[in-house]
């Protein structure tokens, strides 16, 4: 087994509520892997469990052959896993540049950090003009750019992206996803992408998992998932007409 990251049977609770019920999946080096699911499916919880913000009751997360479940988040970052949290979570009163520099907090190679900062500004040119303004004053799209740039500054092996399309216009979503693909292609950074927007996510993903009620119900390559009837109907909203030309209303998902 040579997967970069292997998640095995993790179960995570919010108090008495079980948010993920035994989830397993693999992430291969250099790929974009997406996890799709509706509200409350447990997507964010999976990323929080991997990054150490939440501890699983059962199961294991191994990264480069080493168990990282229940590690403190600051140690997980040092291993090369950076989380771009849901809702950006910037430092609102610090400048954009300071936000980005804090992304490189674990690094001590100042020259390389400076050149990485330039690279982030090259990915997101609109940030350069606002570099000395407070991050809290940026628009939602720009904040998402700072959040992604901040994660890049750590030079991670894996970036965990939690709903980067949340609250953004379709045009911005397209821009952000183009950058995600570029990051993956330029530096071979592995990306785990959690999304509700199945269409954009599957367009870019090499592999995808579908999560419902805390369980993984389907796994396949990105293009194959795009073709599946259930995915098309329930996640992409494409309704095929039946033979009689009328849609059957009581259609069920095949995995139920």
């Amino acid at each position: 087994m040579s997967h970069l990251m292997e998640v095995r049977n993790i179960e995570t609770y919010y108090g008495p509520t079980m948010a993920i019920r035994g989830v397993s999946f693999d992430v291969s080096q250099g790929q974009i892997v997406t996890i799709l699911g509706a509200n409350g499916a447990g997507k964010t919880t999976i990323l929080k469990t991997i990054s150490g913000i939440m501890d699983p009751q059962k199961g294991s997360v191994s990264f480069e052959g080493r168990d990282i479940q229940r590690m403190d988040p600051d140690r997980v970052v040092r291993l090369g896993i950076s989380l771009v949290p849901e809702g950006r979570e910037l430092f609102p009163f610090l400048s954009v540049r300071e936000n980005l520099q804090l992304g490189a907090y674990t690094r001590h190679d100042h020259k390389a950090v400076a050149s990485d900062l330039e690279r982030v500004f090259e990915y997101f040119p609109s940030l350069k003009m606002r570099a000395s303004g407070p991050a809290g004053m940026l628009s939602g799209g720009e904040q998402q750019m700072v959040a992604i740039g901040r994660a890049l500054m750590a030079r991670p092996k894996v970036i965990l992206l939690d709903e980067p399309s949340l609250g953004l216009s379709p045009k911005l979503v397209k821009e952000i996803f183009e950058i995600i693909v570029r990051i993956n292609r330029d530096s071979g950074t592995t990306i785990v992408l959690v999304e509700q927007n199945a269409n954009v996510a599957l367009q870019v993903a090499h592999f995808g998992y579908i999560l419902e009620m805390g369980r993984i119900v389907m796994a396949d390559t990105g293009p194959a998932l795009l073709e599946k009837d259930d995915v098309r109907e329930f996640y992409l909203g494409i309704k095929d007409k039946g033979v009689r030309g009328v849609r059957r209303w009581k259609k069920r998902k095949t995995w139920r």
Partner: peptide, 24 residues
């Protein structure tokens, strides 16, 4: 300073500070 900036970060957003690898 690095520590000073980390203090500001931790006070503005503890979760994000953790995610940056700051030992909060």
């Amino acid at each position: 300073t690095r520590v000073g900036l980390a203090m500001q970060a931790a006070s503005q957003n503890q979760l994000a500070a953790y995610c940056m690898g700051i030992p909060v």
